[in-house]
């Protein structure tokens, strides 16, 4: 593992995913927003107003830079051009945190625009550790790796997901991003117990928590299926799992995430307030 700088980290409070629809409120400093999360790929313009906006946001809030397209779980080498574009953003705004996914999204030069599941086996482990190591070296900072939401699993998987994430973190020195909605979605879809998953999750490595909404559906055989749409309010079971987790870990930087059917800023701010209230109940002096 290459030694890399540990970024300052996000405040131990609640933040919001940035959306164009809320730009006025965000720039005016409305609500109790402690940090902003932005999708790195939305700020990779060569010039123009996007970069001006990026500078303004970074002057107002600690930034969580969240990548969706690095394809850390892919079979192919990391895209050097993409790493370079990420580094440009990092050099420009010095984000408090950078995170990516335990997933893959590109193959044969085609970008599939989705976070796809990988096999949890020895070959994947070595590959992901190497990719995380390369990314951290190229970006000059430690990254947080996010647990995925999945609908299918690979038959050749030999590792449990929590153990797999913990081992990647141990070998590469990366931190983890715990998406509690993803825990619930994957647990229901694969018949696992989300509480067992969370109890085994190495909370000391968690640099950020994600809370989001999902949709309930039925698959072709009538089985309950949760779909990670990020298009709904945060579900009650996710709030409960969040509160139980925070009771064990103490306050952690917590993001209210919504990517589709964006509601009013007020509706997002209400979820933010609820997260802050749960975090403050477990404030450690």
């Amino acid at each position: 593992m290459t030694a890399v700088a540990c970024p300052p980290g996000l405040p131990l409070s609640a933040g919001l995913g940035l959306h164009r629809e809320h730009l006025d409120e965000v720039l005016a400093g409305a609500g109790q927003v402690s940090f902003l999360e932005i999708h790195a790929e939305n700020f990779m313009s060569a010039g123009g107003p996007t970069l001006t906006l990026l500078d303004r946001l970074a002057a107002l809030y600690p930034i969580s830079l969240h990548g969706v397209a690095l394809s850390l779980g892919g079979e192919e080498p990391l895209d050097a051009g993409h790493l370079h574009r990420l580094r440009r953003i990092i050099d420009r705004i010095a984000p408090a945190s950078f995170s990516e996914h335990l997933a893959w999204s590109s193959h044969d030069g085609v970008y599939l625009n989705d976070l796809l599941p990988l096999a949890y086996d020895q070959a994947s482990l070595l590959r992901v550790v190497e990719h995380v190591d390369q990314a951290q070296s190229a970006l000059g900072m430690r990254l947080l790796l996010e647990n995925p939401a999945t609908y299918v699993s690979h038959r050749q998987s030999t590792w449990d997901e929590v153990d797999f994430l913990a081992e990647i973190a141990r070998r590469s020195g990366c931190g983890l991003l715990l998406d509690i909605n993803n825990v619930l979605v994957s647990s229901v879809n694969h018949g696992r117990d989300p509480r067992d998953y969370l109890q085994r999750f190495p909370l000391t490595l968690v640099g950020e928590i994600h809370l989001a909404g999902h949709e309930q559906d039925r698959d072709d055989e009538g089985q309950l299926l949760l779909v990670d749409t990020h298009g709904d309010a945060i579900a009650e079971p996710v709030w409960r799992l969040f509160a139980e987790t925070i009771a064990r870990s103490g306050p952690l930087p917590t993001l209210i995430e919504r990517d589709n059917d964006i509601p009013s800023f007020a509706e997002m701010a209400a979820e933010l307030t609820r997260a802050i209230s749960i975090l403050s109940q477990h404030q450690q002096d």
Binding site: G74, L118, H154
Partner: peptide, 26 residues
Amino acid sequence: PLKSFSIAVRTPDGVQPMFVSAAGGR
């Protein structure tokens, strides 16, 4: 495996790869 996965993703109504376990058309 990921090449097969990738091709299957881009082939609507195509069969899913053998190595993926998913009942119910997931």
